[in-house]
Amino acid sequence: MKHEEKYCPRCKTAFECKVGSIQLCQCSAVALDNKEREYIRELYENCLCAECMKVLKAEYHNQNLQDKMKAILGVFYRVPKK
Rank of each mutant, 00 (worst) to 15 (best):
M1E: 10
M1F: 08
K2V: 12
H3Y: 14
E5H: 10
K6G: 04
K6E: 11
K6C: 12
K6D: 03
C8A: 06
P9A: 05
P9K: 03
P9I: 04
R10Y: 08
R10M: 09
C11G: 05
K12E: 15
K12C: 13
T13R: 14
T13C: 10
T13G: 02
A14T: 11
F15I: 09
E16G: 03
E16Q: 14
C17Y: 14
K18R: 15
K18M: 15
K18S: 12
V19E: 11
G20N: 13
G20S: 14
G20V: 13
G20F: 09
S21W: 07
Q23P: 14
Q23Y: 08
Q23N: 11
Q23A: 09
Q26P: 05
C27R: 15
C27Y: 03
S28N: 12
S28D: 09
S28L: 02
S28G: 03
A29H: 11
A29Y: 09
V30F: 01
V30D: 01
V30S: 01
V30Y: 01
V30E: 01
A31H: 10
A31I: 09
L32W: 05
L32F: 05
L32N: 05
L32A: 04
D33W: 03
D33I: 04
D33T: 04
N34K: 13
N34Q: 14
N34D: 14
K35N: 11
K35E: 14
E36K: 06
E36M: 08
R37H: 07
R37S: 11
E38M: 04
E38Q: 08
Y39T: 01
Y39M: 02
I40T: 02
I40N: 02
I40Y: 01
R41K: 14
R41D: 14
E42S: 11
E42G: 07
L43K: 13
L43A: 08
Y44Q: 05
Y44A: 03
Y44G: 04
E45M: 11
N46T: 15
N46F: 11
N46H: 13
C47N: 07
C47P: 06
L48G: 01
L48F: 02
C49L: 12
C49A: 11
A50H: 15
E51H: 09
E51C: 04
E51D: 11
C52H: 02
C52S: 05
C52V: 03
M53D: 01
M53E: 09
K54R: 15
K54Q: 15
V55F: 00
L56I: 04
L56V: 02
K57W: 00
A58M: 02
A58H: 00
A58V: 00
H61D: 06
H61V: 01
N64I: 09
N64Q: 15
N64A: 10
L65W: 04
L65E: 08
L65K: 09
Q66L: 14
Q66S: 06
D67M: 08
D67I: 07
D67Y: 05
D67Q: 10
D67H: 07
K68C: 10
K68W: 09
M69C: 14
M69S: 09
K70T: 00
K70V: 00
A71D: 12
A71I: 05
I72C: 04
I72D: 01
L73G: 02
G74L: 03
V75I: 13
F76Y: 12
F76I: 06
Y77T: 00
Y77W: 15
Y77H: 06
R78V: 00
R78H: 04
R78T: 03
P80C: 04
K81F: 00
K82I: 00
K82Q: 06
